[in-house]
């Protein structure tokens, strides 16, 4: 058993040694394809993670017709806080609203001179628990709040949320479609490159079959070689995409997404890196299988 394994690996390395150019072409193809894939994945992953970060700021603001009595306010707050989605409720009275508005206007705050606090409505700022920070939960809560006629108007960034969620959906869809096409193109190129290596060794394959080699005996070293090339290509892609990320992508995404500092822009985590290497191995294996079907006929 051990003898056969050693023999198998000797054959794999002999094959690689005998056609280094073709072998490098296969590794290079996998590397380029996976680098492009990793590059787009990084963009999508970072936009998604920032989206998740932004959604943490989702809160519902319920504007009141008039300032309630303290007893009434307490009754409302207790009712709202009892909702499972709600993390906290903060009451902003008219004075506080005017003060905030003034501070937001900054040097233009003198525009408000002569106006009293009554021009702005009091409001309840309702923040949601982490798992409920999405449009659906916000709408559920607002639906319940609407039963209280004293609450006149609600704002939870619905337009912005809808557009943002649609954009994310499009981004995810685009990434899946692009990833699929990229993988398919890579598979096609890898299979053809491996086919070239097999074509260069067709005499060996023919002689093997003639001296009584089983199909698996012939195929396994080529499958291992394909997997090895795929893995090597994936490692190169990982290195390449890390370099691209460090030198270009991080700054590009910081500028594009207007985040402060590059800390929020992340590289692939270890599971995603493993997935990339697994994809490389799979590419090499499937590429070999597709090519071997044509060449190994007993």
């Amino acid at each position: 058993m051990l003898d056969q394994l050693i023999y198998l690996f000797r054959r794999v390395f002999r094959n690689i040694r005998q056609s280094p150019v073709l072998c490098s072409a296969a590794v290079g193809t996998v590397a380029v394809a996976l680098t492009i894939l990793a590059f787009f994945s990084l963009i999508v992953i970072n936009i998604q993670s920032l989206a998740a970060h932004w959604s943490e700021e989702i809160q519902i603001v319920a504007y009141l017709e008039r300032e309630p009595s303290p007893a009434r306010l307490k009754q409302w707050r207790d009712g709202i806080e009892a909702m499972p989605e709600v993390a906290a409720v903060r009451y902003v009275n008219q004075q506080e609203a005017l003060r905030r508005f003034k501070s937001r206007l900054g040097s233009d705050s003198d525009l408000l001179e002569g106006f009293g606090a009554e021009i702005l409505p009091a409001s309840l700022e309702i923040s949601l628990r982490e798992q409920y920070r999405n449009r659906e939960s916000a709408e559920t809560v607002v639906g319940r709040l609407r039963q209280n006629p004293e609450l006149a108007e609600f704002n939870y960034g619905q337009d912005w949320l809808e557009r943002f969620e649609a954009f994310l959906e499009l981004l995810r869809f685009g990434a899946v479609v692009l990833g699929f096409f990229l993988l398919f193109a890579a598979l096609f190129i890898v299979a053809n490159t491996i086919k070239l290596t097999l074509y260069a060794r067709r005499d060996e394959l023919e002689i093997m079959a003639l001296v009584g080699a089983t199909p698996w005996f012939i195929k396994v070293p080529f499958l291992l070689e394909g997997a090895l090339q795929g893995a090597l290509g994936a490692f190169l892609a990982l290195g390449g995409s890390l370099a691209l990320f460090q030198f270009f992508l991080r700054q590009g995404l910081v500028a594009l997404l207007s985040v402060t500092g590059g800390d929020q822009i992340v590289f692939l985590d270890w599971q995603q890196q493993l997935l990339l290497i697994g994809t490389g191995i799979l590419l090499g294996l499937v590429g070999s299988v597709l090519s071997l079907r044509k060449f190994v006929r007993i």
Binding site: I207, G212, A213, T214, I298
Partner: peptide, 24 residues
Amino acid sequence: GSSHIPQLRRHTGIVFQDFKLLDN
């Protein structure tokens, strides 16, 4: 069946006009 062909060939020596040796 094709799975038995290798076994048959292991007991058959074949020689060709063009030798079919591996040059490398």
